[in-house]
Simulated assay, not measured.
Amino acid sequence: MNSENSISLSKTTKSILNQNGIKLNKNLGQNYLIDKNKRDQIINFGNINENDVILEIGTGIGTLTIELAKKAKKVIAIEQDKNICDILAKRLKEEKIDNVELLNEDALNIEFPKFNKIISNLPYQISSPITFKFLEYDFDLAILMYQKEFADRMNGEVGTKNYSRLSAMLHFKCDVKKLTDVSSESFIPKPKIDSTVVKLTPKKNKISLEDFKIYSKFTKALFQHRNKKIRNALIDSRHIITNLDKKEMKKCMNEIEDEKLNNYLKKRVVVVTPEEILFLSKDLNSILNG
C-alpha cells in the first residue's frame, strides 16, 4: 500500500471521519478499507456492467459505494449506523450520484430489494448470518471480503478443522473461489487478522428448495457437535429437527433397520460429506417427522 493513490484514499477517509467526529468501533466490524489498489481490484472482480444492480452491505462512508455507482445501473447500499449513513448521503449528493438506494437498516432484518450482484466489505461480526441470508436469494455472483479464517472455513474439506456448517451449507449452493488476501494494514482501525476476498457463484438446480430446507436444519443440528457421532449429535440437537422428546427420538433411532443409514449414524459428524448429510437428512426427516 505504497502508492500515492492509496495514501490519498487513506487521507481522504481519515479526513472525512475527523471532520464528522466519527470514531470507528472495531467491535461493530467497522474496519474501513484504505487501500485504493485493493478497492479497485475488488470492484474489477465484479465485472460490473451498466445493467447490474449491486447490493452492498456495510457501506461505511462509501469507499466502494461511490465507485460501484459509477459503473452499475444501481447500487442498493445498506448501512446500519445512522451517523455513517448521513455522511454517505451527503457525499453522494456532493458527487451528484443519484443511482444509489441508501438504506439505514440492519441488513439481517430486512428483505433485500431486487439485485443481481453482491459486492461488499462485510462487517466481520455478521459474516456468518449474512452469508446464510444471501443463500436465500438468486444472484449472478458475489464478491465478498471476510476475515481470512472465516474464508478458509467456506471451502473447508471434509475431515479437516475447517470443515464446518458453513462449508457444508455452501456446498450445494455456491462455488467458492478465493481471489486475493488483503493485509490488515489496508484498514483503519487495523484488525487483528488479515482478510480474504472470495467469489461466490451460485449453483443452478443442484438441490430442491424443500430438500435444502431439511438439509439446512440437519446440518445446523450436526455441526453443533461436530466431533460427536451423528446419532448422538442429532439426539442432543433434536429440537432443531423434530418435536419428539429424547425418549421418543431414541426409540425411533433404535428401530431403524436400514444398514446404510445405521452405518452413517455411527460416524463422526466431521467426516461425513455433504452428500451423505443430504441422504441422512431426507431419510431421517421422514422417520422423525413422518
Rank of each mutant, 00 (worst) to 15 (best):
4 E>L: 13
9 L>R: 07
13 T>R: 11
13 T>A: 06
18 N>D: 15
19 Q>I: 05
20 N>M: 05
21 G>W: 14
21 G>R: 07
21 G>M: 05
22 I>C: 05
23 K>N: 07
25 N>I: 01
26 K>P: 12
26 K>V: 14
27 N>R: 14
29 G>S: 05
30 Q>M: 14
31 N>I: 02
31 N>E: 10
32 Y>Q: 03
33 L>M: 09
33 L>Y: 00
33 L>E: 03
35 D>A: 10
36 K>F: 13
36 K>L: 14
36 K>H: 10
55 L>M: 02
59 T>S: 10
60 G>W: 02
61 I>D: 01
67 E>N: 11
69 A>R: 06
75 V>G: 03
75 V>M: 06
87 I>H: 04
94 E>C: 02
94 E>P: 00
95 E>G: 04
98 D>Y: 14
100 V>Y: 09
102 L>N: 01
107 A>S: 08
109 N>Q: 12
118 I>T: 09
124 Y>F: 07
133 K>I: 04
136 E>H: 11
137 Y>N: 05
141 L>I: 15
144 L>Y: 11
148 K>R: 14
153 R>H: 04
166 L>K: 06
169 M>V: 02
171 H>K: 06
172 F>E: 03
174 C>F: 06
183 S>I: 03
187 F>H: 14
190 K>A: 02
192 K>R: 14
194 D>R: 05
195 S>E: 04
200 L>Y: 11
201 T>Q: 07
211 D>G: 03
213 K>N: 15
216 S>H: 13
217 K>R: 13
217 K>A: 12
221 A>P: 04
222 L>Y: 09
222 L>V: 12
223 F>I: 08
228 K>A: 11
228 K>L: 10
229 K>Y: 06
233 A>V: 08
233 A>G: 02
236 D>L: 13
236 D>G: 00
239 H>Y: 15
240 I>L: 13
254 N>P: 02
257 E>F: 14
263 N>S: 14
264 Y>D: 11
267 K>P: 03
269 V>K: 03
273 T>V: 06
273 T>D: 11
278 L>T: 05
282 K>L: 15
283 D>T: 06
285 N>A: 07
287 I>C: 05
290 G>V: 09
